[in-house]
Nucleic acid binder design. Structure first.
Lengths: 155, 155
DNA sequence: CCAGAAAAAGACCAAATTGGTCTTTTTAAG
DNA sequence: CTTAAAAAGACCAATTTGGTCTTTTTCTGG
């Protein structure tokens, strides 16, 4: 099964959570509890987000995290790549491409490049601001039993 | 780093190799040698391709594999999914979606569905016949030092 | 019909990756 | 200066992945 890593999945969720209250500074404990992500794991992810410039951290008492740039400037690709590294479907697309000992007998690299770009575009076409559009902003303050439309499509 | 599994990568290469000589039946040993993929691993992949209907196997002496359907009917998604299972970026997109204990507090599922479809389209937009178009058909019969165009783009 | 060659099937092992924990250090507020 | 919080990074465990090996089945050619 082709899937994202759990960490990438978590990261998007945490970012959504933060983007829903862009003005407030949230501590990792609060975010972890709200998203039900184990605290140390959430911390690690938040650290990666800061390193990527997607969040800014505020140290010391009452510290926490807030968006580093606007939610409409952050794409899903940005978040995923901050956690899992670049989208690079095959080994021969990276800088270590020469490690591929089949490179001289493989004519598919230019096709792989096209496919890779297409996948990157697909992931990059959704912005964080779009991810949260349909999310009621009272999430976490109380349970909402309002399943997304998608459940009707896939069942 | 977001990448395909090695098996999926191998699978595409094996399929290309077979599609280049669509009329002939090739044994797994020959294919493994040509692609420099370890024989037992190649066998396993070829078996998966047969199970998916992309290849047909011919048992017995002088047996081997040949395309099950036309190379222009096989997309990269078909090959990848035969090896790695369905493209399903997040856990909440499958039939075990209800296992997600955040489902009622997560409004992003419909967005994930969109992203997943976009990625599937990206992978599905390339056919096996296109993958081999630019490949000189004397591959494997001798070393070709004709690097694909792509090397100029990414370096 | 028999012997041999090849694929099929599946149990099994090892290494790499991933997810997660814990500890120590740094920073800032009060 | 004390305390609370983030940062950093060493470390561990579990899953997944890649790969091997063995046994069974099936077909061809003699």
């Amino acid at each position: 099964m082709i899937k994202l890593s759990n960490l990438a999945d978590y990261a998007v969720e945490l970012m959504c959570c933060i983007a829903l209250k862009p003005e407030s500074i949230r501590g990792s404990a609060s975010l972890a509890e709200q998203t039900k992500i184990p605290l140390p794991t959430a911390s690690k992810i938040l650290g990666l987000m800061v390193k990527a410039g997607l969040l800014v951290s505020h140290r010391g008492l009452n510290g926490g995290f807030s968006l580093g740039i606007g939610a409409d400037k952050i794409s899903i690709t940005d978040i995923i790549e901050a956690v899992d590294g670049p989208v690079q479907l095959t080994n021969c697309l990276g800088e270590d491409a020469d490690d591929c000992d089949r490179i001289s007998s493989c004519g598919t690299r230019s096709q792989w490049y096209r496919i890779n770009e297409a996948v990157k575009d697909a992931l990059g076409s959704v912005l964080l601001s779009q991810m949260i559009e349909s999310v009621p902003d009272f999430i976490g303050d109380g349970m909402v039993d309002d399943l997304p439309l998608i459940s009707k499509l896939i069942n």
